[in-house]
Amino acid sequence: MDKVMEYIWAFAVGGALCVIAQILIDKTKLTPARILVLYVVAGVALTGVGLYGKLVDFAGAGATVPLTGFGYSLANGVKKAIGERGLIGALTGGLTATSAGIAAAICFGWLVAVCFKGKPKG
């Protein structure tokens, strides 16, 4: 696939996933935390039924960077671990596959807490 098209699709698909969430924010009383939960669980479910993998092949980071992609990584990790280790993989696979992102958030979060101070909102 042409490089430019890769970026256009990443932009379009990633942007579209954000637009769906924006509609939920504006039109419903769903809090951001609920929307994020919805996205992760939807990502797991769509990966389970084989749809999200196709979107990832097609949109690259446009599908993996949104939080549905986090669900995709969890589900894919579980699937892979089950193939390698059997049923125990259902417990080990998800967090293993997403460990880099979670550990990074924890470590950078802690470092930011050490180094910075909150300011009043504008």
């Binding site: 924010i25 951001p32 909150g118 300011k119 009043p120 909102k121």
Partner: peptide, 17 residues
């Protein structure tokens, strides 16, 4: 504003609309 945000809503640096 800052103490009320912390208690009733979100952390000050949380990005929300």
């Amino acid at each position: 504003n800052c103490s009320a945000e912390r208690q009733f809503r979100y952390p000050l640096e949380y990005g929300g609309q």
